[in-house]
């Protein structure tokens, strides 16, 4: 499998990364180099192996249904580039 400039553009958009037009092709080459190297995994016999998402084999710990957080609006908004009347303010989004 290898990526071309078009795929790079698509992936960059999915990841919301601006990539200059002239960088698309070189980036594709770089990614192909890495992906090619990664593909040596195809040599491994993984028949019947369960994918391992975590090294831990216990059930996820749980909280009780208790309200013990929130009411910290100043902290929540403190680092925001722009706020108004307790809201985060962001560029216009379309529905």
């Amino acid at each position: 499998m290898s990526v071309d400039a078009k795929t790079v553009r698509k992936i960059a958009h999915l990841a919301r990364l601006e990539v200059a037009e002239e960088r698309l092709a070189p980036l594709a080459d770089e990614l192909n180099g890495i992906l090619h190297w990664i593909e040596q995994l195809n040599e491994v016999d993984v028949e019947g192996v369960a994918p391992m998402a975590s090294v831990e084999d216990v059930s996820t710990p749980v909280r009780q249904d208790i309200v013990n957080d929130g009411n910290i609006r100043d902290d929540v908004l403190a680092n925001a580039p722009r706020t108004e009347e307790g809201f985060f303010v962001m560029p216009k989004a379309v529905e």
């Binding site: 208790i66 013990n68 929130g70 009411n71 609006r73 929540v76 307790g86 985060f88």
Partner: peptide, 16 residues
């Protein structure tokens, strides 16, 4: 652990 109650002031029922 933030509350779910309806109709609170904006961003008051928000944890980090």
């Amino acid at each position: 652990g933030a509350a779910t109650e309806y109709g609170a002031e904006p961003n008051t029922q928000v944890s980090l």
